[in-house]
Nucleic acid binder design. Structure first.
Lengths: 230, 230
DNA sequence: CCGGAAAATGACCAGGTGGTCATTGCCGCT
DNA sequence: AGCGGCAATGACCACCTGGTCATTTTCCGG
């Protein structure tokens, strides 16, 4: 899982924990704000009030710094994400989907820097570890959703003709967009996910989850997909 | 609509049309490949085999070049997009949604450079005209979907309790992700949207559209949203 | 064939980048 | 008190960026 990132870091580890925390925080903030290429080591050391040489002594290179932040963030994220995943396994599918949306959104809100870096890594290139991120973290999310759907199918809560892979793809796309809209009014475009009122946000998230569960059309007995006339 | 971009461009307009086309094409390719900040004027003139000064004489600045490309692309896009929007207005909602997905994907495929720049502008910052892009182009898409849903509701093809704004948001998110996955196997993650086989892609797109229409759950007579037990 | 204007050119500029390293300063050990 | 080693420092480096402009080349009308 944690693969590499195995730089020694002897010097950095001996630092005063408070300073160490500040270094990590400010660096992460820089990457969150500017992406990878556009992030500036000069700016980081400027904010921190330390010499540039020090940062390079700690992490070897800009990429080394980023890799360190990445593995740190991965550790920090694991536990709460597993908690979301494993909670209330017995719940019916539509409620569980709602809960995942709401709690996913809360998670993104509680880790704003990590979330922003994640989004940047997914959508921009040039990030180190991007492939690993996509195949592991995002891949795990997709697998989780797929299994959720498959479980729902064995319990009769999801139509058997639904392709679990396709469903997982759709759910992930919706959740991803929802969380992104959360901290970008421009992307939210008035829908309400970037509102400051928590109950508004919850309502919108629930609405999205419910539309995925129930669909847009009125219920019909027809079990087949809509048929084209060509 | 076309707002500014009103640079004179007298010199550039007098150029041999073939050369003019090459300049626009290669520049657009650079922005598509590297985004705005990471795009390099030096690289562009290198590819083109012209002097740097020339490019600055044509467009004044890097931003001027981009603005010119942007308004060009906007013009190029208008007609085909309107064609997709206005085709077959009488069709039933689920079929129409399918069609929009399939034709939207075909459109993105037929304008790969413009599509990639669009995606970059939406997800990255630092692009000039980003706000305009989001509020106009993407806003228009959202409006279109909202009206589609509202029309479906008056015809009884969509449940009346569905919020058209939320539905538009969800549809746009799904379509956007589908088109993005189309040219990125990593984002596709094995779903099949980046397949080279057109019928496979069509099938996946239709599957997504159908899930939106019919939902994941089996049909029930219940008209209310799923109820939580807390 | 010439003259003048417009267009093409690329050396050059200031400013920023990630990265280096000789020097300095500090801190603990004997 | 003095030493030894490690950590902090910031001037410095090569490279790249967008942008400029004096100079040369091209082209066209008389």
């Amino acid at each position: 899982m944690d693969a590499q990132s195995a730089t020694p870091l002897s010097t950095f580890d001996k630092l005063d924990p408070q300073k160490r925390g500040r270094v990590l925080e400010e660096s992460l903030a820089e990457f969150a704000e500017h992406g990878y290429h556009q992030a500036s080591v000069n700016r980081i050391v400027g904010r921190l009030g330390i010499a540039k040489g020090s940062l390079f002594q700690y992490f070897g290179s800009k990429e080394g710094l980023f890799r360190h932040l990445f593995s740190r963030a991965l550790e920090e994220i694991k536990t709460p994400l597993k908690a979301i995943r494993d909670a209330d396994t017995g719940e019916a599918f539509p409620l569980r989907l709602r809960r995942v949306f709401v709690e996913g959104a809360a998670f993104a809100r509680s880790h704003p820097l990590i979330w922003r870096v994640y989004r940047r890594m997914v959508t921009q290139d040039g990030f180190p570890l991007r492939e690993q991120l996509l195949s592991q973290v995002r891949g795990e999310a997709l697998t989780y959703f797929r299994e959720l759907v498959e479980g729902g199918q064995t319990r009769g809560e999801i139509r058997p003709e639904v392709d679990p892979l396709a469903a997982a793809f759709l759910i992930e796309a919706a959740l991803d967009r929802a969380l992104t809209a959360q901290d970008s009014p421009l992307l939210d475009a008035g829908f309400g996910l970037s509102s400051n009122d928590e109950s508004t946000r919850r309502a919108r998230l629930a609405a999205l989850a419910d539309m995925l569960s129930r669909g847009l059309m009125p219920p019909t007995g027809d079990t087949n997909a809509p048929r084209a006339h060509d």
